[in-house]
Each structure stands twice: as structure tokens, then as C-alpha cells.
Simulated scan of single mutants.
Amino acid sequence: MKNELQLSKKSQDFLENLRLYLFSSGKNTDEIDDIVRELETHLSEAEKNGKSIDKIIGKSPKEYMKMISNEMIIDYRTWFKYICIIVLGSFSFTVFPDLLKGNLSYSVLEIFGHILIGIVFIASVFTGFKYLSTVSQSISKQGMVLVGLAILPIALFVGLIFLNKAIDTPVIYFGNTASLIIGLIMFLFIIGVSIWAKTWTLIIIIALLTLPDYLLNLTSLQYETKFIVSMIITFGGIALYLWILSKLEMSK
């Protein structure tokens, strides 16, 4: 975090952890910014007068963060917004491939499973971030936590696929018009999220998951060949894109 005020490394780290703790506690981002700026000023003045950060926050940063968090109201609108983004985002990975195959149809288990996974993922991310903000960990251990958070939704979706095959629940069939409307809504959602996040990542990954399989099905190649080539293009393309992103980020 870049500060105009002069702060020690310890104070900067605390403010970054406080921001992460409050965000993962579901607090309003504008209120978080106000509190961090105010505390930043207090810490800067204290350090100029030769006082330690402990004089402001005490000897337990975690308790101080918890105290501030308890004085703030939970921003349920933000929680709901992120849950909706995760749920619709997860559906976007299946809607477009399914739409290219014909009209859409999903079981009740699939629909409620996506919603539940979205809620579990948001809760796990907020819990993980709160843990990282209050406990001093090595880079490797922090990486393990973040990798675990990334793997969790993948594991849950794989489990949902097998569960959906094992348990029969009513299937909702969407007609041609309804399927096109859903496709249009998902397309506008993806564009909106990409503009909001200022990245093409979601669009590119969905395109790589959808187009290779669709285009190869238009050819006369054997099924096994189509499957192998599609996997190579899809996962190779995603890996290449992420590698390019990492190189561009390192060059900044």
C-alpha cells in the first residue's frame, strides 16, 4: 500500500492487514478506507513523536482489529453482490458450452448446488483472508492457503457433477427463447464483470473452454482425436494466457 505519510514497515503491514481483515469481515469498503486513513494519520504522528505502534493498537493487533470490526456494521449488500457474481460466474462456464449444443436444461440439484458452492466459496475466502491478516505466516504457508482456496471450488464442482449423476432430481428444461435470453444475460454479465474488474481473463477463459470443442465438432475428426486436441488447446491456452499475465505483471 502506497502512503503519502511516512510510516514504518510495521505500521504499513498492520494497515494492510487491517484493511484485509475488515474486508473479509464483510464491512463497507468506503468505511474501511475512512478508518484506515484516520488510523494512518494517528500512526504517522505517533511515530514522529518517537512512539511505538503498540502505543496506538496495543500488544495484540488481532484484538484491535476485532474491536474495530465489532464497531462496524456488516455490509450485507456487498456479501450478496459477491455471492451473485460467484454463482453467475460459475454458471457462465457451463451455460455457453451447453448453449452451443442446443437448448439448456439443468437439474434442481445443479442449480441449488451452484448457489451453495458460491456461498461456501465466499465464506471460505473471507475466512482465509481473515486468518492471513491476523496470523504471521511465511510466504510458502500463505501460498498454501491461497492454493487451497483456489482448489476448493474446483473440488466442489467436480463433486457436484458426480452427485448429480448419482442422484435423480427434477430437470428444468428451457425452450429456445428462454435459452437465448439466458445466454444473452450471461453474455452481458461477463462483459459487465470484465469491465468492472478491468480484465479480459474471464472472457478469454470461457472462450477457451467453449470454442475449441465447438469448432472441432464441426470437423470430421474422430471423437478421441477431437477430445485430445480440444484439451490441449483449452488447457494449453489457459496456461499460456496465465503465463503471459504473470510476465506482464512482473515487468511492471
Rank of each mutant, 00 (worst) to 15 (best):
N164C: 08
G102K: 10
I203P: 03
I73E: 15
V193L: 03
F174P: 06
I244Y: 13
A239R: 09
L160T: 04
I172F: 15
Q222Y: 12
D168G: 06
R77N: 14
D13C: 07
F187A: 13
L88S: 12
G236Y: 05
C84G: 14
M1E: 08
F187M: 11
L245K: 15
Y214H: 12
L248G: 05
V108K: 09
I85L: 14
I244E: 04
L7C: 03
L99D: 03
S133E: 02
L188F: 10
S24N: 02
S92E: 02
G183Q: 01
I35T: 12
F80I: 15
F174H: 08
K66D: 13
V108N: 08
L88Y: 12
F187S: 12
D213G: 04
N103Q: 10
K55M: 10
F174N: 10
I167D: 09
S44E: 03
E71S: 14
M67G: 11
M67R: 15
L209R: 11
A150F: 12
S107V: 07
F23H: 12
E110N: 14
L245R: 14
F14P: 04
K59W: 08
G237E: 04
A150D: 07
I167V: 13
L39V: 02
K141G: 02
L88V: 15
G192Q: 06
M250A: 15
K66A: 15
I205G: 01
A150C: 09
G183N: 00
K2H: 04
Y223K: 09
V95M: 06
I205W: 00
Y131I: 05
F126N: 09
R19Q: 05
S92V: 02
S105I: 07
I182T: 05
Y131K: 08
Y223S: 10
E63W: 10
L22A: 03
P153Y: 00
I115R: 10
M250F: 10
K101Y: 07
I190M: 14
G148F: 08
F91Q: 01
Y214I: 05
T41K: 14
I161H: 10
I73M: 12
K101E: 14
M144F: 11
G236N: 05
G237Y: 04
V135Q: 13
I182M: 06
V125M: 12
G159T: 02
Q12K: 13
F174Q: 07
Y173C: 04
E38W: 07
K101C: 07
I119N: 03
R37P: 04
T201L: 04
S140E: 12
S24D: 00
D213N: 09
G26Y: 09
I191H: 10
S60M: 06
L18T: 01
S8E: 00
